[in-house]
């Protein structure tokens, strides 16, 4: 796709890529029995189409909550958020989202292929289209031999890959991923990271990725959003100087270490304030 324009792409990207997510002065306060909890406070963030944005921060910093606000699974108590120019609810209606949870969340009574079919069944796509999409994306995540298996017959890593294939099948404009590889071992995690990068480059979609691994954030992202807790807020947005096309070998370069150090410093700053 778009092979002819490939060379000029970075220049075009910087100027013309539309705003995918616009968040202005957004806050979210949960009312609990112990009083109000400021889960998110004065969030300002713009994410452009084609960005790979990671939210990183210690637990309780609101990174998952922010992702859930984008997905319309939580509503803000103040401020505004626009997704592709509309409200998150309309974006959900327009089926813009592919959400990958921390757990695979596969339906245990469906086979892997039938699980991938769920979003397409909901949006009423033809059986033929469903089958070809399932074939394509299960192959992409390396599960081409597991169509007819039930989730419990697969390892945790394979289940999570299936859940990513499920999100990819509808080719959503916006992939929202909440620590999708948190439960995986490091080897599988590396492999999944590279697969995800490959898929992102092929599909040119926007990805918002929650993680608490600095290495993962550096390896994957075009932008890294550093967050801190109590109240949950953004302390720094770092644009990655690394090339879009990344390899695992990149981790041994000076640029990689510098960026990792910058993130670590931003995280440490906030802890000092705490």
């Amino acid at each position: 796709m778009q092979l002819a324009v490939k060379e000029t792409e970075p220049a075009v990207e910087a100027v013309s890529h539309r705003k995918m997510i616009e968040i202005d002065d957004l806050s979210l306060v949960f009312q609990t029995n112990d009083g109000p909890v400021h889960a998110l406070s004065d969030i300002n963030l713009t994410i452009r189409q084609g960005d790979f944005v990671s939210f990183i921060g210690p637990s309780g910093c609101g990174k998952t909550t922010l992702l859930r606000v984008i997905a319309d699974l939580e509503r803000q108590t103040a401020g505004s958020i626009k997704v592709d120019g509309t409200s998150p609810e309309d974006a959900r209606k327009n089926r813009l989202y592919g959400y990958v949870f921390q757990a695979p969340a596969l339906l245990p009574w469906r086979t892997i292929a039938k699980n991938c079919a769920v979003p397409m069944e909901i949006s009423g796509q033809s059986a033929a289209h469903q089958t070809s999409q399932i074939d394509k994306y299960l192959t992409m995540v390396g599960l081409q031999d597991f169509h007819q298996k039930y989730p419990w017959q697969l390892s945790g890593g394979m289940q999570q890959r299936a859940s990513i294939a499920r999100a990819l099948c509808i080719e959503p404009e916006l992939m929202l991923m909440d620590e999708p590889f948190g439960a995986l071992d490091e080897i599988t995690r590396d492999h999944m990271n590279m697969e995800l990068l490959k898929i992102w480059e092929q599909t040119k979609k926007t990805v918002v990725f929650v993680t608490h691994s600095i290495a993962e954030a550096v390896l994957l992202s075009t932008h890294i959003v550093v967050m801190s807790p109590r109240p949950g807020r953004i302390t720094k947005v770092i644009e990655s100087p690394l090339p879009k096309l990344k390899t695992l070998a990149l981790r041994d370069t000076e640029a990689f270490h510098q960026l990792a150090a910058e993130i670590r410093a931003a995280l440490a700053d906030e802890h000092a304030i705490d």
Partner: peptide, 26 residues
């Protein structure tokens, strides 16, 4: 029904009958 399954269906804007037949019933 698992909360995660329900939220998953919600992100795909499933109708309540789709929610019933695909998740709740099973």
């Amino acid at each position: 029904a698992d909360r995660l399954h329900m939220e998953l269906m919600q992100t795909y804007f499933a109708s309540s009958s789709q929610l019933f037949w695909k998740v709740r019933w099973y």
